[in-house]
Nucleic acid binder design. Structure first.
Ligand code: FES
Ligand code: FES
Lengths: 151, 151
DNA sequence: TTATATTCAGACTTTTTTATCTGAATATAA
DNA sequence: TTATATTCAGATAAAAAAGTCTGAATATAA
């Protein structure tokens, strides 16, 4: 799989929030965990990290939970991926060399620069609101989440 | 990092072979391990897997080693990646859903299809010989391999 | 104030990936 | 034939990622 589970869980949770942004001030992590079938404590840590990355805000206590820090139209998937996979994930040399720059290019550097631009553009080119807008029925979205592939 | 160590080791080893294809019939794994600074026993297993994937042939005993099964001009990086990361790595749904097809597309499916085409084309569009041809001095290639980044 | 619902924080366990070790099988060369 | 160089194969160990548990902190509502 291309993205780690940690990152997929984070992306899905954030899309869930984008779909339910207006329901109330904060959405409990327990609810997200239940609906998206993500282990509660694992999700808690992931969302906590998204908080540190200024993507979510949270509130403790009754009626607490998490919420998007900005409107879904001002957030994108790349922010989430950078926060959860680390900033090097899509930016380091595809052959694993120490630096990646056109000053000391590896044998795949120019190709990778082009492919990477495709990927970065895909993840940052549209907002979470745009992506969530394509989730036609929430039931279909949730249903799909319950079946996980094994690799 | 985008590709696993396993896969990077395999790619580098195969590029090394592409550069030294004509030296002799077989190249000992020990030599590749020494030159590219890859743990010997780990590399042995990786190359064994590339053998099962019909990318390498091998010969045991003195003067044995491994060699490309076909000329470097008839092999590409995608074959190596598929063998070492598994066939799902770049082909499954980017949001981790069970199936990836335009019949049941996720909210990022069409974007991912385009980005994926970029990546697959990058890895399969040119042969190992083409890539190796851009490695200007072997010293620079080897030097770069000795410094590993930490993520 | 008290009970309850929630995140925060870190320790812990399990699983997967990465790496190492050992011995057997096999080919070459002296 | 014998010594040596090598891959093959599987067991084991170490490190990293994924997931679980527990208790503290904090906010709300009765
Ligand atoms: S140096 Fe390798 S991809 Fe840039
Ligand atoms: S269904 Fe998600 S990328 Fe194709």
């Amino acid at each position: 799989m291309f993205l780690s589970k940690r990152c997929l869980h984070g992306l899905r949770a954030v899309l869930y929030l984008a779909l339910h942004d207006s329901d109330r001030a904060f959405t409990p992590i327990q609810e997200i965990s239940d609906r998206l079938n993500i282990p509660f404590h694992f999700l808690t840590k992931i969302l906590h990290d998204l908080g540190k990355a200024d993507i979510l805000i949270s509130s403790r206590g009754a009626a607490g939970g998490v919420a998007l820090q900005r409107p879904a139209s001002e957030l994108n998937a790349l922010l989430v991926i950078d926060a959860l996979e680390g900033p090097h994930f899509l930016r380091s040399c595809v052959l694993g060399f120490d630096a990646c720059s056109s000053l000391a290019p590896c044998a795949l550097h120019s190709q990778w620069e082009a492919a990477r631009a495709c990927i970065l553009n895909m993840f940052s080119g549209e907002s979470l609101a745009d992506i969530a807008g394509r989730i036609e029925t929430e039931e279909a979205f949730l249903q799909a989440l319950r079946v996980e592939r094994k690799d």
